[in-house]
Amino acid sequence: MTDFADNVESIVSGPPSDLQRLIDSDVDGLLDTPDKVAKVTSSDRLKRAFMEVIEFRRAQGRIPSSTTREIAERKLGSRLDGILADEEKIAALKELDEFGLLDLADAPSTIEDLLDGDDLDLLGDESGLLDLSGLPDRRSADTADSIAKRTKAEGFEAFEPLFKAKHAELADGTYRLMPFPGVHTIEQGNFFVLNGVMLFIAEVGDSTYKVVGGKQEKKERLRVIFENGTESSMYRQSLSIRLHEQDGQVLARTGHDLGEVGDADEESGHIYVLRSLSEDPQIAGIKDLHKIGFSTTSVEKRISNASKQPTFLMAPVAVVEDYRTYNLRPSALEHLLHRVFAEVRFDVTQIDQKGRDYDPLEWFIVPRKVINQAINMIMSGEIVGYLYDPDTQSLVERT
């Protein structure tokens, strides 16, 4: 070190030719120019930050949580969340992602897909937090998004003649439209009308069972062909709900219900729905006042003397619905309907022709459409899970 200092002093005062001698005597590298530090780019910082997440995954066998109380882990978890929210960052780091941390699952396109992917039954909702039965029904026609979920029907040329034939049979009276009877009628080969569009059940898939909310539910995928050339793979129950909510219809052969009535089936009576023609202001002013009853004879014969019978409020009536029943007691069906609408039974006392008080028990303040829905749901067995909500004037699921 002394030799180098002596050389420096002599060279500074000596000729420039001695500079090389100075350099040669610098055995300690004091005159070496330090390497220029490379500038750290934002890309380098991003990769370095992601590698810390990778190291955590390698060491712990899991991804870091952004909600933990461990500050160091929470920092890494938040960092990963930020990366996953930015497609450009994902693309830049993809080559470093040895554990697939940046692979994003496809978002479910339908509610059914969301529920199918709920392997841990997180949406079972036994607590009732997701129960919307207390809210008013919200009905809407098909939106653009809903229609977009349908796809072009493969081989539609084979189905198109079926729709043309059904339209012709509706025109000549061979078939008729009737209110949707219930989920039990959604079978392969049947036609329905939803929002003015005819649809055909081309296939019913195999049944699968899933436990939801502590109870086992049956699910079946359908292949539904629409006359506009599209198709859908909705669930049977989903189609039933839409047909119920949007006043869907079914095509049935004229003179029969959808399930063909055979020679061995015996007509056992009628369930009827009546509207009072009373001029009494206290009765005439009540909206949606209906009588639900049964008869083993024709309804016309049953109501022929309505104006003289307190059960008919001592006034003429109009028939708004007449259901024929087969192989069952119509009184049993009537009793079920009275139980469903018990909360809205019309409380009134009538005086018969002999001056005696009479309390009619078959009048209810309920919309005709809901009565029809209840009858169909009783026949299909769906009614056991529903009750009538007077506030929303609709049938809602039991909680």
Rank of each mutant, 00 (worst) to 15 (best):
Asp3Arg: 09
Ile11Lys: 10
Val27Ile: 12
Leu30Gly: 10
Thr33Pro: 09
Pro34Thr: 07
Thr41Ser: 15
Asp44His: 08
Phe50Ile: 05
Glu52Gly: 06
Arg57Cys: 15
Arg58Gly: 04
Ser66His: 12
Glu73Leu: 05
Arg74Leu: 03
Arg79Asp: 07
Leu80Val: 07
Lys94Asn: 12
Glu98Ala: 11
Leu102Pro: 02
Asp103Gln: 15
Pro108Glu: 06
Ser109Cys: 09
Gly124Pro: 04
Asp131Thr: 11
Arg139Ser: 09
Phe156Asn: 02
Phe159Gln: 01
Phe163Cys: 01
Ala165Thr: 14
Lys166Trp: 03
Leu177Glu: 08
Met178Gln: 15
Thr185Val: 10
Glu187Val: 01
Phe191Arg: 02
Gly196Gln: 06
Val211Phe: 06
Glu217Asp: 05
Glu220Leu: 00
Tyr235Cys: 06
Tyr235Trp: 12
Ile241Leu: 13
Arg242Trp: 05
Arg242Gln: 14
His244Pro: 03
Asp247Met: 12
Gly248Trp: 00
Arg253Val: 08
His256Tyr: 14
Asp257Tyr: 10
Glu260Gly: 05
Val261Ala: 12
Glu267Gln: 15
Gly269Asp: 04
Ser276Pro: 05
Ser278Met: 03
Glu279Ser: 13
Glu279Leu: 13
Gly285Phe: 07
Leu289Trp: 01
Leu289His: 01
Lys301Pro: 00
Ala306Arg: 05
Lys308Arg: 15
Thr311Pro: 00
Asp322Trp: 02
Asp322Met: 03
Arg324Ala: 12
Thr325Ala: 03
Tyr326Ile: 04
Arg329Met: 10
Pro330Gly: 04
Leu333Ala: 11
His335Thr: 11
Val340Asn: 02
Val348Ile: 15
Gln350Val: 10
Ile351Met: 09
Val366Trp: 00
Pro367Met: 08
Arg368Cys: 09
Ile371His: 00
Ala374Gln: 02
Ala374Gly: 03
Ile378Asn: 04
Met379Thr: 12
Val384Arg: 09
Pro390Asp: 10
Ser394Pro: 05
